[in-house]
């Protein structure tokens, strides 16, 4: 494997966003790119990252390899990069280590680190292609604020999507709260748009603790996409350049 990423910062942000959910992960490398799929210990949330080969320049992966990496170790090494550094990931066949080289674009500084790999026997989930009943795009910062605000009142949020808009509501010991968003187009600042694409009304309840955790990815993308269908896991997607993405799935809470 040899994969050069124009911005080391991208991988750093991904790792920062997921490392509280999952600890040891396989980075599956093949000629289409670098993918990661891991569930949290409680089997409630799943992280699915895809960094397509187009996100790298150049990208070369001659044989499929799984790089088992402890994310805390990876985070420590990625913190050694300067924010504008270029990152090259390298691994040999049947590797013991993954090699990370940070290059400064405007100086001759070159730093190099090896991280020891681990054997990770990971359960892999097959995620069916789903036509969701509701697809909502909104500013990622807005979603983060809603989740944080409602978590002050309750452990859970009900997300209801109708043709009127999307309503996030909660009930807790001190009282209740809700935030409703309607479709909204801002021509000057499209990152502020709220787009609701609905085929049938949806109402689902989710744990706010996990949603707040997902929102650590807000720095990766100005917009977040929420995809919902009744009685299936929620998909929270942060789109990255070149069709790469960071996705989170969260199992719903369903009435007893």
């Amino acid at each position: 494997l040899e994969a050069r990423l124009e911005q080391a910062n991208l991988l750093k942000k991904v790792v920062d966003a997921i490392k509280d959910l999952v600890q040891d992960c396989n980075f599956d490398c093949n000629d289409s790119g670098i993918a990661l799929q891991a569930m949290d210990n409680s089997h409630v949330a799943l992280v699915s990252m895809m960094l397509k080969s187009e996100s790298f320049s150049p990208f070369r992966c001659d044989r499929n390899i799984a790089l088992g990496i402890n994310l805390t170790s990876l985070q420590k090494v990625l913190r050694c990069a300067n924010s504008e550094d270029i990152l090259t990931l390298k691994a040999e066949d049947a590797p013991d280590v993954v090699n990370l080289v940070f290059e400064s674009a405007d100086s001759d500084r070159l730093s190099e680190y090896d991280i020891k790999l681990m054997d990770i026997d990971q359960e892999h989930l097959g995620i069916p292609e789903t036509e969701y009943a509701a697809n909502i795009s909104m500013p990622s910062a807005e979603f983060q604020k809603i989740c944080r605000d409602l978590m002050a009142l309750s452990e859970s949020v009900a997300i209801e999507c109708t043709k009127e808009g999307v309503k996030f509501s909660c009930n807790g010991d001190i009282g209740s709260g809700s935030v409703t968003l309607r479709s909204h187009t801002n021509v000057d600042k499209p990152e502020n748009n709220v787009e609701i694409d609905l085929t049938e009304p949806v109402a689902l309840t989710f744990s706010l603790k996990y949603l707040v955790n997902f929102c650590k990815a807000s720095g990766l993308s100005g917009q977040v996409k929420l995809c919902l269908s009744n009685e299936v896991p929620l998909l929270v997607e942060y789109g990255l350049a070149s069709n790469s993405y960071l996705r989170f799935y969260l199992a719903p809470k369903i009435g007893d």
Binding site: M39, H43, V44, L46, L125, V232, P233, A251, P252
Partner: peptide, 14 residues
């Protein structure tokens, strides 16, 4: 109160 479901109830292990 609603109960937290497990993801493996929806997605199959492969």
């Amino acid at each position: 109160t609603p109960v937290q479901n497990d993801l493996t109830e929806f997605f199959v292990m492969v």
